[in-house]
Computed example of a mutant assay.
Amino acid sequence: MPRITASSNAAQRENTQNAILRSFGDLLYTRGLTGLTMTHVAKNAGIGRTAVYNYFADMGELLVAYALDETERFINDLRTELARVDNPVDQLAVYVRLQIEDMSRRHLPPGPTMRSVLSPESFEKLGHHVGELQAVLAQILRSAIEQGYLPEADIGDLARLVHGSLSSATDRGQLEDGETRTARVEQIVTFVQRGLGARFDDAGRPVPIQGRPRLEQIAS
């Protein structure tokens, strides 16, 4: 890895911290959390092990920093992309696509594993950012219901259906690339939208549902 250079001490510290986070993310994706040490992270980043400890006290603190950084980046990117479309059903498609890409690109341990290696205070920090992401999805679903594009349903139930579909699809998506992957993602998008009761015209545009039924009435 090339030597990290910057025009000021503050920029140098930021560059070094970012290099550590990137190194940790690469290793987390390729080998997982089990057995991963600060020495591995430092060597992969091309810096001394002591330097890593200048930024992060232990692996738990590094894991939290990485997760928060990744989640914040994703939320910012998501909000930028959502602002480009108006219809909430189309926004749901944006959410699903970006989530699949993000879940396939990085490899954060599942919630129970995170809880087992983090202090309650650190785990609570992660929960705040996860809550932000959940709030974005909840607002999309709420708007879709209020505008008549989705049937009446509990927002929490709908959100669980969305994330359940994403979780089951991600592992298969990691094995694909190119046109096959793109087609798979679009299949998942359509599956989620129609599974929540969305309806479309012949041109594939979302249309309001007549009569404002509940989701279980459509499903039956």
Rank of each mutant, 00 (worst) to 15 (best):
G46K: 09
R142H: 12
P206K: 04
P120L: 09
D58R: 11
Y149V: 09
S23P: 08
L63R: 07
G148D: 10
A19Y: 07
A6L: 07
V130R: 14
L36G: 02
Q193A: 10
L28N: 06
I140N: 03
M114P: 00
A57I: 06
T39C: 03
G148V: 12
S220R: 15
S167C: 03
D90K: 11
L63P: 00
A42L: 06
V96L: 04
Q139M: 10
T34P: 00
P2Q: 07
M103E: 10
S168M: 12
A93L: 02
L166A: 05
G173N: 12
G156V: 07
R212Q: 14
S220H: 12
A169W: 03
N9L: 13
A135L: 13
P109Y: 08
L126T: 12
N87S: 01
G173S: 13
I218G: 04
A153Q: 13
P88D: 03
L161H: 09
L27G: 04
Q210R: 12
L68D: 11
E152W: 05
F123P: 00
T113M: 12
R212T: 13
V189A: 02
S116M: 04
P88N: 05
P88I: 04
L137H: 10
R115N: 09
S220T: 12
G35S: 08
P2W: 01
Q17W: 01
A19W: 08
N9I: 13
S165I: 09
P120H: 09
Y66F: 15
T50L: 09
L196G: 02
